[in-house]
């Protein structure tokens, strides 16, 4: 099982990652980070395949991928 880690403090909530995840495992959360952005959150319970598309599209290099 793969997983991703979203660095909350770097995320600006642009939501580009949410459009590319083939499994629909990322969404913009309801909490604000210290910069005042609603940041993206990863649904741990899903079936992440580690394709890293989310990380590749992330303009803030806020996502790391583990496999």
């Amino acid at each position: 099982m793969a997983r991703i880690e979203i660095k909350q403090s770097l995320c600006k909530g642009c939501a580009l990652c949410t459009t590319l995840c083939p499994e629909g495992l990322i969404e913009i959360g309801k909490r604000l980070n210290e910069s005042g952005y609603f940041f993206a959150v990863f649904r741990e319970e899903g079936t992440c395949k580690g394709c890293a598309l989310c990380a590749k599209i992330c303009p803030d290099v806020a996502i790391e991928v583990w496999k």
Binding site: K56, I63, E64, V65, W66, K67
Partner: peptide
Amino acid sequence: AEKKVFER
């Protein structure tokens, strides 16, 4: 053996 496959 979990490996980081994408990082900064």
